[in-house]
């Protein structure tokens, strides 16, 4: 049990990536049209983090995985119906606003507070996981802020791989410029890892995993504590859809030779 780790995965929920999004501005600031109607999924990068966490926990007996998620209770419940079938975890739901526009500092404060209060969590064995960015806010700052609040100064972002060694140290691969990975070795927990896609395939839906998770998920959801997020002086001047309609020339009657010649000229031009 030398390498038993306590992994807390911070994972938000985001609109299903296939949905059509349209911003609107309401009395409480910007949001998405029909946001509560759109089907939601676990944030894709955070989902990678969750699968990696489960994989790591499975390989290191005695480990445990918590999933901390902030969002409207009803939406969290809906997303858990799918997420719970993937891997074993204990849900820590926080009933709060949906969407990408609330301030990340406030989100981080609420998350850190919830994590610090987790019963049974050994902070010395903590690996704080999450996506390196979210598909809503896309800021890539929440996890760092949570890490700072928990006093963790070994942090890694754009992580694609972790190898936990027998001595408790681990090697991490982080995405950096140029399509390369920076390789680091950390002496051990605690640490923060913001995941990119990792290398694991999405786990199959396992009904038994789902049922086991649900035993704790539903009571947790019923007790989810509400959270309001302070704006921290953040004000939106405008929120809009990009207008990038181009005039497209559709070329149907050129031979491959002619097209190639045109492309060569285009590639070479400044």
């Amino acid at each position: 049990m030398a390498n038993a780790v306590h992994i807390v995965v911070c994972a938000g929920i985001v609109p299903d990536p296939l949905q059509t999004l349209e911003p609107i501005t309401g009395p409480n600031g910007p949001g998405l049209k029909n946001e509560m109607v759109l089907p939601a999924v676990l944030d894709p990068w955070a989902a990678s983090a969750l699968y990696e966490a489960a994989n790591l926990a499975a390989k290191n007996p005695g480990s445990k995985v918590w999933l901390v998620s902030l969002g409207p209770k009803a939406k969290l419940q809906q997303v858990m119906m799918t997420a719970a079938q993937k891997v074993p975890f204990e849900l820590v739901p926080i009933d709060g606003p949906i969407g990408g526009f609330p301030d990340a500092h406030s989100t981080a404060a609420v998350l850190a507070e919830s994590i610090a209060a987790l019963p049974g969590l050994d902070r010395d064995r903590l690996l704080l996981f999450g996506g390196w960015e979210s598909a809503t806010r896309g800021a890539g700052v929440t996890l760092q802020l949570v890490g700072e609040r928990l006093g963790i100064t070994d942090q890694f972002y754009g992580v694609d791989q972790i190898d936990l060694r027998d001595d408790g140290s681990f090697e991490v691969l982080e995405r950096v410029e140029g399509g390369k990975h920076q390789v680091s070795v950390c002496a051990g927990t605690p640490a923060v890892l913001g995941w990119a896609t990792g290398n694991l395939a999405e786990p199959r839906n396992n009904p038994q995993t789902g049922m086991a998770n649900m035993r704790t998920i539903m009571p947790a959801l019923q007790k989810a504590r509400p959270a309001t997020l302070a704006p921290n002086g953040l004000r939106y001047v405008s929120v809009s859809l990009p207008k990038q309609q181009r005039t497209t020339r559709v070329v149907k009657d050129l031979t491959p030779d002619e097209i190639a010649a045109e492309l060569v000229e285009w590639i070479g031009a400044e």
Partner: peptide
């Protein structure tokens, strides 16, 4: 939307489980 409305209430009772994607 009707299914979602009904399903959310059902799941919130904690008495039954509905598993999509299965």
């Amino acid at each position: 939307q009707f299914n979602q409305w009904v399903g959310s209430q059902l799941m919130a009772t904690g008495l039954v489980q509905i598993w999509p994607g299965t």
